[in-house]
């Protein structure tokens, strides 16, 4: 294989790893919107909370912190859903946008007030440090670990939605909430669970990114927009669409860094523009009757 092609292939594979970073956040965002109709602008805040929690807990309990932090974010998610999101499911979407926009600012400022504006130090745990060399390619062992955890989380979520009574009701609730109600099933507990899962996934993403990115109050705002772009490209409500779009955005970004780095971040917006021109519903977007 010519050298140039080797380098490009390396970037494509690395792009898939980068795409995984967006994946978990975008899935939660998509899920909460699909069932509750709320565009959660505070989603990045929960990613940041996940990162801060693992930094705090790791010194105290060690490796279990990586499991405890996302679970705690999910618990916080239950509280937030009960107190703030619940009254807005049936309201004008503009109201929930304002609410979550405010919530995002409150979370960021709260992190700043509690932990200060300077980033918190945190490293890759000892056991996961190092690199894996495959032929000419180099990969970080820690990013392999992220890939494994993210794959398990995605598989678990898919099984939950497709193979359990819980998932059947959630899917029915997305398509026909009134019919679900007519069958005597209240969606309220399901909405709470979905918010907990969605926000917990954002917390999981933050937890896993903490060792390789700066842990600072605005980190949630940094990741939110790429996550939205992924959801829009993949298509609202589409599980596989979000996964495909996350990986696609990662690869396109990697190739742009290779050929023309100044456009690295702009590439995803260009991709979104192209997708919206040819497929306004996103690549795999489903038709959700109540949002038409």
């Amino acid at each position: 294989m010519p050298l140039e092609l080797v380098f490009i292939t390396e970037q494509v594979v690395n792009g898939l790893f980068v795409g995984v970073n967006y994946l978990l956040i975008a899935l939660g965002l998509s899920l909460i919107f699909s069932l509750g109709g709320i565009v959660n602008l505070a989603h990045g805040g929960f990613y940041a909370i996940g990162a801060y929690l693992v930094v705090l807990l790791f010194d105290w309990v060690g490796y279990p912190a990586f499991a405890a932090a996302p679970l705690l974010v999910a618990v916080i998610g239950v509280v937030v859903e009960r107190l703030f999101l619940r009254p807005f499911y049936k309201a004008d979407p503009a109201l929930s946008l304002l609410l979550t926009f405010g919530l995002a600012m409150v979370i960021e400022q709260a992190l700043r007030m509690i932990f200060g504006a300077t980033p918190r130090p945190f490293s890759i745990p000892e056991a996961l440090r190092g690199q894996i060399l495959i032929g000419d390619f180099i990969y970080s062992r820690y990013r392999f670990a992220i890939l494994v955890v993210a794959t398990l989380a995605v598989a678990g979520l898919w099984l939950l939605l497709q193979r359990t009574p819980f998932g059947r009701i959630v899917r029915a609730g997305i398509q026909a909430p009134d019919m679900v109600g007519a069958l005597g099933i209240s969606l309220k507990p399901y909405l709470t669970m979905v918010a907990a899962i969605g926000l917990g996934l954002a917390g999981l993403a933050g937890t896993m990114m903490a060792p390789i990115t700066g842990v600072h109050p605005a980190m949630g705002a940094e990741i939110l927009i790429p996550a939205f772009v992924v959801v829009v490209i993949g298509g609202l409500g589409s599980f596989w669409g979000v996964i495909f779009a996350a990986l696609l955005v990662g690869v396109v970004r990697g190739l742009t860094v290779y050929f023309y780095p100044p456009a690295a971040e702009a590439s995803m917006y260009l991709l979104m523009l192209l997708v919206l021109i040819f497929r306004p519903r996103g690549l795999f977007g489903e038709r959700i009757a109540r949002f038409e």
């Binding site: 792009g15 790893f17 700066g214 780095p261 456009a263 690295a264 702009a266």
Partner: peptide, 9 residues
């Protein structure tokens, strides 16, 4: 770009 957070590429 100023909004880049991932440097792996």
């Amino acid at each position: 770009p100023t909004d880049s957070t991932d440097f792996s590429a």
